[in-house]
Write a protein that binds this DNA or RNA. Structure first.
Ligand SMILES: [Mn+2]
Ligand SMILES: [Mn+2]
Ligand SMILES: [Mn+2]
Ligand SMILES: [Mn+2]
Lengths: 219, 219
DNA sequence: ATATACATTTAGGCTAACCTAATTATACTT
DNA sequence: AAGTATAATTAGGTTAGCCTAAATGTATAT
């Protein structure tokens, strides 16, 4: 009923909407899905006729409730598989995305339930992204970029805004992992370079580009 | 490069050849893959041109070494996933085949390696079928149907010849599991009904139809 | 208000993997 | 050896998901 292609379109629409808040454009979808704009227009018409998206010609698309539920379910599966790959199979957090892109399309509600249980009902994936429940509901999150913190603030590193392998590997190289406690020791006014104390041990220095992408929660 | 469809054709050819020892016919493939004979002929021509099978028109197909390696690799993945589903996710042995049919097509050598390690390098799947190594080699097996055993023989139950859910559920209902020790107490000459002692405890009675499909090894 | 740039849609095509109906090849019976 | 049943192939089509090139729409700058 729902093909992998369809699942990928719905997921992409969901994520692009999440990012911009607006209707999702043909060109944005073409870009993220690496297909031509013409293919996107074609496909959109198909899923619009299935009531998975609402489509305003030349303006863009928005998910319907039906479409969003499918999208969120794929995201749920993707994140559960990533947890499995990292926690059980000992993959690194920068090695799991591509494999999860395939695994997320496996169809079996039973499998998802068993996997969820096997993993101890995790609430976040290895990158700190929240895992929705089977009804498509997300927990409330109160994270913010470290960039928004001020000197003296003590926070916990709970997620990344940039999921690129480059960034993940940069953090690994600098020994920063999810769960680490971060104490803001100094903020350079001029360029927003942060000096932070990690886990009450060494001081580390991070550029604005980095702290912008570190998501933290007040402890 | 290798689509799921192609993998399924190669796997089907491998299994049908294993069963009959002969070239695999168009109609046998159509039957197992649930597609029309015309589709099979089409597809065979394609994989023959890729040197994955050798094809004699109107006679049948045989795997080449290249084709066999792909087939065996899919079987390896299928069986590893089944082990995972049963040993780690607590599925029953009659619940895993369909899910493994999907999982076997996930493409990542790294994933297979990590999974194999996670499972402790298993040599057989939940139905007792041998798991080939990554080079496509199978261990030697010396199993035989319980039907071929004689009174007084003590053996171990190590596999099933019939993989149907009906048979697997029959065995579950009768508390017979892989690894059980079986002592042949009596064989009824007339209809080959077996009376066996399981794990030095209760006696059980199995029909010829059943013992034909129980694979055992001398202990 | 018009020109220009850029985004989107339409038109027409392609390939993989299937199908049915018609034809041809092989095997079995008398 | 011819006739009949069955298996396999060929011919001609379909659908999903993609493509390029051409046409149309929309936004921005003068
Ligand atoms: Mn991911
Ligand atoms: Mn993730
Ligand atoms: Mn199986
Ligand atoms: Mn099996």
């Amino acid at each position: 009923m729902t093909s992998s292609a369809e699942e990928n379109y719905l997921k992409a629409i969901y994520k692009l909407h999440e990012k911009s808040g607006n209707m999702v454009t043909t060109s944005a979808l073409a870009e993220t899905l690496k297909v031509s704009a013409a293919s996107v227009t074609d496909f959109i018409k198909k899923i619009a006729s299935k009531k998975l998206v609402s489509y305003e010609k030349s303006k863009g698309v928005k998910l319907t409730d039906k479409g969003r539920l499918i999208a969120v379910n794929i995201i749920r599966k993707h994140r559960l598989w990533e947890v499995w790959l990292v926690n059980k199979l000992e993959f690194k957090w920068d090695e799991v995305h591509e494999i999860a892109e395939q695994l997320e399309h496996i169809i079996s509600d039973d499998l998802v339930d068993h996997l969820d249980k096997h993993l101890g009902y995790p609430t976040a994936d290895p990158h700190g992204d929240l895992i929705p429940d089977s009804k498509g509901r997300f927990a409330k999150s109160n994270s913010k970029p470290l960039l928004e913190c001020v000197k003296g603030e003590k926070v916990k590193f709970i997620g990344v805004a940039d999921h690129s392998n480059n960034f993940l590997q940069y953090l690994t190289k600098n020994n920063l992992s999810l769960g680490d406690e971060i104490m803001v020791e100094a903020v350079e006014e001029f360029d927003n370079t942060f000096t932070v104390r990690v886990n009450r041990k060494e001081n580390k220095i991070f550029s604005k580009e980095v702290v912008k992408n570190l998501l933290v929660a007040v402890v």
